[in-house]
Simulated scan of single mutants.
Amino acid sequence: MVTPGETTPDGDDGELTVDQLARRAGVTVRNVRAYAARGLLPPPRMVGRTGYYGRQHVARLLLVREMLAEGYTLAMIERTLTSAPATGSSATLALHRALLAPWLPPEPEEITGAELAARAAVPESPAVVDSLVELGLVERIGDSRIRVLDPALLTAGIQVLALGVPIEALIDAQARVTEHVREIARTYVQMFVETRWQAWVDAGAPREQIEEIRATVARLQPVAAQALLAAFRTEMAGTVQAAVETALSRLAEE
């Protein structure tokens, strides 16, 4: 363990007090405490009543500051850092952010069950909310309030309801669609891991290629979405045609 005032092997200063940490990262002490309260920083090493911070805390604070400057909210930053290694270096956290941030859904929305029902033009039903919770689409955060994890998906669902589809049928269909989409996501991620990522690891994970890895991940999202949409349109056209032909044949027989 590096003691306060010592120097680490790579030349960085040793452990820092909260005031020194704030100065190093270019933020206020108040911000440091606020970020720590949200879980954005791992706990410091305590000596009596004094906390000492290390390079991993500096790295996290610099990443938080950078993401805030780019327009990310604290909630999105929190989701990005939740699965990040607590002792990650600046390079590790930057790579973690690059791999995860492009795939994060929009900012969650908090509403009441009554507001959700009104927006969907359906009667308020705790059972429906339970089904949405089970699907992982919403979270309960109180007796009457819920957190919509992906507002864009909620908007799409409401548009389907407006077509006259019963909400129970929509929830059942979404559960099946989610399973298929999860498998598609695994396919694309595994493809990336087994090819581009593995090649980088086999080369010794050179730091000079981190930006290239980040760029690859950033391009993967729109390319994968385009490919998925194109395949869906083709399959949808064929499925609709078959269904229409079957329906018309039955109508002609009646």
Rank of each mutant, 00 (worst) to 15 (best):
234 T>H: 14
74 L>T: 10
250 R>L: 09
163 L>N: 06
186 R>Q: 04
154 L>A: 12
83 S>A: 13
91 A>T: 10
250 R>I: 04
76 M>R: 15
78 E>H: 15
13 D>N: 01
221 Q>C: 04
133 V>K: 09
254 E>L: 14
59 A>C: 11
202 D>E: 02
125 S>K: 04
35 Y>I: 09
196 R>M: 02
116 L>F: 11
150 D>S: 03
176 R>D: 12
104 L>K: 11
165 V>N: 08
130 D>E: 15
71 G>S: 11
82 T>W: 09
227 A>C: 04
63 L>C: 10
186 R>P: 00
234 T>L: 14
133 V>T: 14
140 R>P: 02
184 I>W: 07
219 R>F: 09
116 L>A: 09
200 W>H: 10
78 E>S: 15
211 E>L: 14
25 A>W: 03
175 A>V: 02
144 S>Q: 15
129 V>G: 02
129 V>S: 04
71 G>V: 10
232 F>R: 15
177 V>L: 15
156 A>N: 09
78 E>K: 14
221 Q>M: 08
169 A>V: 07
224 A>Q: 06
63 L>M: 14
56 Q>V: 00
43 P>T: 08
22 A>W: 05
145 R>I: 09
29 V>G: 03
151 P>S: 07
72 Y>W: 15
208 E>M: 01
103 W>T: 02
57 H>L: 07
59 A>H: 04
141 I>M: 11
122 V>L: 11
181 V>M: 11
163 L>F: 12
174 Q>T: 13
149 L>V: 11
141 I>P: 12
108 P>Y: 08
89 S>H: 08
215 A>W: 07
96 H>D: 14
128 V>P: 01
99 L>G: 06
72 Y>S: 11
10 D>V: 11
190 Q>C: 00
181 V>T: 08
5 G>H: 07
63 L>V: 15
166 P>L: 08
129 V>H: 10
8 T>P: 00
217 V>E: 02
236 M>V: 13
41 L>R: 01
67 M>Y: 07
191 M>Y: 09
116 L>V: 03
191 M>S: 12
15 E>A: 09
20 Q>K: 13
215 A>K: 13
106 P>C: 02
226 Q>E: 13
249 S>A: 14
163 L>G: 08
43 P>S: 12
16 L>D: 01
43 P>K: 05
200 W>N: 05
54 G>F: 01
235 E>I: 03
161 L>S: 09
236 M>H: 10
151 P>Q: 07
98 A>N: 12
94 A>V: 05
252 A>W: 08
136 G>M: 03
169 A>H: 02
23 R>M: 05
252 A>G: 15
36 A>H: 12
201 V>G: 00
58 V>A: 05
14 G>S: 01
190 Q>V: 08
39 G>N: 14
202 D>N: 00
2 V>E: 01
148 V>W: 02
112 T>M: 05
161 L>M: 10
204 G>Y: 03
66 E>K: 06
137 L>H: 06
220 L>H: 08
137 L>Y: 07
177 V>T: 06
225 A>P: 00
73 T>C: 08
121 A>L: 12
183 E>W: 01
75 A>M: 06
164 G>F: 05
150 D>T: 00
226 Q>I: 00
166 P>E: 10
146 I>Q: 04
17 T>G: 10
42 P>T: 04
111 I>D: 01
